[in-house]
């Protein structure tokens, strides 16, 4: 069981990281959400797997037998809530960014960067050192 969960965690993390490495900013946002899901799964597995009973002592009993560890479940709930808020924020941000910047290509998002050619870094006059930005021949 734990090996299946471990495999699931790593597959989720790998897919999330793969999406994050994309140049499409929307995919990056989705990738972060997927990575978050993988981490949450790992957090859930940090208790112990197997028992599925709620950690509530039944009426009339004194001992709790075979219940799952409630703490990782509480932690993962908190993490999901926080992750949910961040995913909401990142989607709103990405939508606004794509709308205002007019592109969803991370390489063309240079508004906050000093690029050769902007006012902070004037282009070099020697054509041998002329800036190749944005790189030509991109699809």
């Amino acid at each position: 069981m734990i090996w299946a969960v471990a495999a699931a965690v790593w597959i989720t993390l790998a897919s999330g990281v793969y999406l994050c490495l994309s140049r499409d900013v929307f995919r990056v946002a989705l990738g972060l959400a997927v990575v978050g899901a993988g981490v949450n799964l790992a957090l859930l597995a940090s208790g112990r797997l197997g028992a599925g009973l709620p950690a509530v002592v039944p009426k009339g009993e004194q001992l709790l037998v075979g219940a799952s560890n409630p703490l990782p479940q509480a932690l993962v709930l908190t993490a999901i809530v926080i992750g949910f808020a961040l995913v909401c924020f990142s989607l709103a941000l990405v939508l606004g960014l794509i709308r205002d910047a007019g592109t969803d290509d991370a390489l063309e998002l240079r508004a906050a960067e000093p690029v050769p050619g902007d006012e902070v870094k004037p282009p070099q006059t020697d054509p041998a050192h002329a800036p190749d930005w944005p790189p030509e021949g991109r699809p």
Binding site: C20, V25, V28, L32, V35, G36, V39, N40, L43, A79, L86, F89, S90, L93, V94, G96, L97, D100, A101, L109, R110, A111, A112, E113
Partner: peptide, 22 residues
Amino acid sequence: VDQLDASFKYLALNLLGTLLLL
């Protein structure tokens, strides 16, 4: 636009950081 651009970069790298922390 530069602020949105900056917040996207801040978000992507810092969120990976907090997920690593988690």
